[in-house]
Simulated scan of single mutants.
Amino acid sequence: MTNSTGFKSYFQLHNVDWGSMMSATWETVWMTLLSMVAIVILGIILGLILYETRNKPGIGYRILNWLVGLFVNIFRSIPFIILIILLLPITMKLAGTIIGPRAALPSLIISAAPFYARMVESYFREVDSGVLEAAESMGATTWEIITKVLLPESKPALIAGATVTTISLIGYTAMAGAIGAGGLGNLAYQDGFQASNNTVTLVATVIICLFVFIVQFVGDIFVKITDKRTL
């Protein structure tokens, strides 16, 4: 009983607002999950375009591959903190504000989707060419090859890549929070660093680390479930 009382008193003395901490945690989870849904969809589409057009004859395919490759290379090269600033006008038009969790979504998606797209392209290249050729010889259409061969065969790698991207995205949300996007990063900066309250910063850091561990653990489980080599 004494230890429990002392534990609570310690955090009360250091002004940890648990209501704000839980609210900030939810904002971080919300930003991460919502962004990842868009990132996975956009990343697979961009990666698929890069994969399908890389060796196709015709000027149209080459132009499309070049344009998508240029988009991917540019936006995955820009540091996230700079990208947030560059996208402020677009963020204002899309979200109606430049502060809060909703305002962070465009920057989070545009920064991470190109990164994931390159990973997706590499995963598609690793699919056994013999399996693809067998599907083609059986008269499968391009759409059938994509949905019934390419995506299922690369599913474990896609999940592993999404896990890595999600973990990177959690770090991005913390950076976005430092300039007013909400979440644990914002709480750690304003209520922790600026208020000289190291306990708030420490608790926010621990929660972020736990979130990362959970994401990695869940991702590893799904990789094992979908990987035929481990069955």
Rank of each mutant, 00 (worst) to 15 (best):
R76Q: 01
Y172S: 11
L94T: 05
V120R: 09
F211D: 05
V68A: 06
F7E: 04
Y123K: 05
A204F: 06
N197D: 06
L105G: 01
Y61R: 10
E126H: 06
V149E: 14
Q190L: 14
G43S: 05
G180Q: 07
T199D: 11
A134T: 06
A188T: 00
L86A: 15
L50F: 05
V203Y: 09
G47K: 07
M138W: 03
T142R: 14
A103E: 00
L88K: 12
G219D: 11
L86D: 07
A174M: 09
G69N: 12
V164C: 10
A117E: 10
A181N: 13
I44N: 03
R76L: 02
N197S: 05
G219E: 03
T205P: 06
N55A: 08
M1K: 06
Y10I: 05
A134V: 04
V215S: 09
A176F: 13
G192N: 03
A162P: 07
A204R: 04
R229F: 08
V212N: 02
K224P: 00
I45L: 15
I146N: 07
Q190A: 10
F211I: 06
T199Y: 10
K93W: 11
P79A: 06
F11E: 05
R54C: 00
W66N: 11
M31T: 01
T201P: 00
I84G: 08
K148L: 13
V37D: 04
L150T: 01
Y189N: 12
M22K: 13
R102P: 01
V203W: 05
A113E: 07
L87V: 06
T2H: 12
P89N: 02
S9D: 14
W66E: 08
F71H: 04
T25I: 01
G6V: 00
Q12G: 05
I41W: 04
V29E: 04
G171H: 08
A140M: 14
A103V: 03
L48Y: 15
S168P: 04
G43D: 03
V223P: 02
A113R: 01
V68S: 02
A174K: 10
S77V: 03
D128W: 00
I59E: 11
C209K: 02
C209P: 00
L83Q: 11
F222Q: 12
H14G: 00
S168L: 15
S107V: 10
L67R: 02
V40N: 00
A38H: 05
I109Q: 03
K228Q: 14
E52F: 08
G177T: 10
K228C: 07
V131C: 07
L187E: 09
V120F: 02
K224W: 01
I82M: 11
I63H: 06
D227E: 09
A176C: 13
M92D: 14
K224R: 15
N73T: 10
T97E: 11
T173D: 00
M22F: 15
F222C: 13
P156Q: 09
A95P: 08
A188P: 06
F80R: 02
W18V: 06
I207F: 08
G19M: 05
A176W: 12
I90L: 15
T5S: 11
A162I: 05
P79S: 05
I82N: 02
A113F: 13
G47P: 04
L202G: 06
I159P: 06
Q190F: 13
T32F: 04
S9Q: 14
E121I: 04
I41T: 05
L94D: 02
T230P: 08
L210G: 15
T91Q: 01
